Computed example of a mutant assay.
Amino acid sequence: MLYQPKWSKAKKRLKSLVCEPLRSRVDFQVINYRKAHDQLGRAVITVDKQEKLSMCTITAERQEYYRKRKIRLESNNFDFEHVEINRDIQEQAHQQLKKEGIYGQYDFFTALELFFNSPIEVSLNSSDSLIKILCLLDRRVGKRTLRNMREAILEEREVVRYFYHLRCQAEKISVS
């Protein structure tokens, strides 16, 4: 499934929300593999033309398969006919991967949709690391808010902390 509406429009909107000091340094790319069965590929966030976060569908789906298998082994549940159980196992596996920072391109699109359609205050309180990263890059998040996040950011995953420090550095905010 390709992103709807067009990725070029979404990218333009996303880039317009990036704070001024980082606008020329941060970029977002979507790489689709036409020969892949679902035509999905990777979504990438780069800083100074270096990949800082890669969300590869193939990697995420492979890891999800192994997670589902592990969940089935631990629960000794191999009932593949029961739709509700299968969905629950898939959701458990998917949530585990998101907590570990293993994302597919579709996770990026989902986060983007939520980010675009929620007030910035709601997005800032999201438990989704991708949405938090988008917030940290967002010009609507001011210096006072960034300073107030100092303690809470210590509890976040390393990649979220990286984008927090990047934004603080760009805004000349001391984080020590």
Rank of each mutant, 00 (worst) to 15 (best):
E74N: 02
I85V: 10
E84R: 12
F108P: 01
H94K: 13
A93E: 04
F109Y: 13
Q92F: 03
I89E: 06
R69C: 08
F80T: 03
K98I: 11
F109A: 09
F78C: 03
N77Y: 09
G104Q: 05
L97V: 14
F80A: 01
E91Y: 13
H94A: 15
E74T: 00
Q92M: 11
V83K: 14
G101L: 05
S75T: 03
G104R: 00
Y103K: 04
A93L: 02
D88V: 01
F109L: 07
E74M: 06
K70F: 09
R87D: 10
K70S: 11
L97H: 08
H82S: 02
K68R: 14
F109W: 07
E100F: 05
I85F: 05
Q96T: 11
R69F: 12
G104E: 03
S75N: 05
Q95V: 10
K99M: 08
E74P: 02
Q92P: 03
K98T: 15
K68F: 02
D107A: 10
Q105P: 13
E100H: 00
E74Q: 08
L73C: 02
I85N: 06
E100K: 05
E84D: 14
K70N: 11
I85S: 05
I102N: 06
I71E: 01
E91F: 10
I102M: 10
E84W: 09
K98V: 11
K99L: 08
V83F: 14
D107Y: 09
K99D: 09
R87Q: 13
G104K: 04
R87W: 10
Q90Y: 11
I85L: 08
Y103E: 09
E91H: 15
D107K: 10
E74C: 01
K99H: 10
I89W: 06
K99Q: 12
I102V: 15
F80Q: 00
K68N: 04
E74W: 00
F109N: 03
N77F: 00
D107W: 07
F108I: 12
E74K: 06
V83I: 09
N77W: 03
Q95G: 08
L73R: 00
D79A: 02
F78S: 00
D107H: 15
I102A: 08
Y103W: 15
K99W: 02
Q96R: 12
I89R: 05
G104V: 06
I71V: 11
L97N: 11
Y106C: 10
H82N: 15
Y106K: 14
G101V: 04
E81V: 03
N76F: 01
D88I: 03
V83R: 14
L73W: 03
Q95W: 01
Y103Q: 07
E81P: 04
I85A: 12
Q95A: 08
N86F: 00
F109C: 11
L97D: 03
F78Y: 04
E81Y: 05
L97Y: 12
E91S: 15
E100T: 03
K99A: 12
T110Y: 07
E91T: 14
Q96M: 13
G104C: 09
F109E: 10
N86R: 09
E81D: 13
F108R: 07
N76G: 03
G101Q: 07
F108Q: 10
T110M: 05
D88W: 00
E74F: 03
R72D: 02
E91K: 15
D79F: 06
Q105N: 10
R87M: 10
R87I: 05
H82W: 10
I102H: 06
Q92A: 09
N77C: 08
G104L: 02
N86M: 09
A93S: 13
H94N: 13
L97G: 11
